[in-house]
């Protein structure tokens, strides 16, 4: 059973997750048609910047985060920005969007000069997230858990981060049992996505280098 305190924690995270989203005007640009590869590149750069700002605003609401050592806050955000960005965009991709929008988005990304060998793992990840049909609470908690990963580079006080991540994992585990009684492996599958996210991190670094070159 989820305790009252755990329910309150979950509510704080979900409210912050819903409050901090990419501004509508920025997101709308993604759906305007006819952009050249260069314009797509600039648009995706603007989207990435906006997602990082949204990520920081969301993260400030995670109980205990702002009381962490300041440099550790930077290390956690820097270490998780790419993963949190892919987690969030995966959820955008798997939402029921008006017909055609997903295709327009996919087309835009395919035509932005990103190499194929990076595209495939990214869209595979979007598909595997979509198949999980996560509810909002699961998405918000998984994002918070991704950010509070203790073993990011340059994090000095890993125990302090673990003390923040632990209660999140516990609430998410209970939530998965309640939400998916017929799927005992569901929680494990969610955590499996975090491992997949880490490989995307590696691809993303390579993708940026190749993007800069062409």
């Amino acid at each position: 059973e989820i305790t009252k305190a755990q329910r309150a924690l979950m509510k704080v995270i979900v409210d912050a997750y819903n409050r901090h989203k990419i501004p509508q005007d920025v997101a709308k640009k993604l759906l305007q048609d006819q952009y050249s590869a260069e314009e797509n590149f600039l648009l995706l750069t603007e989207m990435a910047t906006s997602q990082v700002q949204v990520l920081v605003e969301f993260t400030k609401n995670i109980p205990g985060f702002l009381s962490l050592n300041h440099e550790d806050q930077i290390a956690l955000l820097k270490g998780s920005a790419v993963e949190a960005m892919f987690l969030r965009s995966a959820q955008v991709f798997s939402q029921k969007m008006p017909n055609g929008h997903t295709e327009v988005l996919e087309e835009r990304i395919r035509k932005s000069g990103i190499s194929e060998e990076f595209m495939t793992p990214m869209f595979n990840f979007y598909k595997s997230i979509g198949e999980l049909h996560m509810i909002e609470e699961e998405q918000a908690l998984l994002t918070a858990i991704t950010i509070l990963t203790p073993d990011r580079p340059f994090v000095k006080d890993q125990q302090a981060v673990e003390r923040l991540q632990e209660p999140m994992l516990e609430v998410l585990r209970k939530l998965c049992v309640l939400q998916h009684p017929q799927e005992p492996q569901y929680f494990a599958r969610l955590l499996g996505r975090l491992t997949e996210l880490r490989t995307l991190n590696h691809y993303h670094a390579e993708m940026l280098t190749s993007w800069r070159m062409n």
Binding site: V52, Q53, Q73, A81
Partner: peptide, 21 residues
Amino acid sequence: PASNLGLEDIIRKALMGNLEE
């Protein structure tokens, strides 16, 4: 605008709370 700042700059700026480009 923020979009040509590095990742860490954007994070530091956002953490300090001033978001204007």
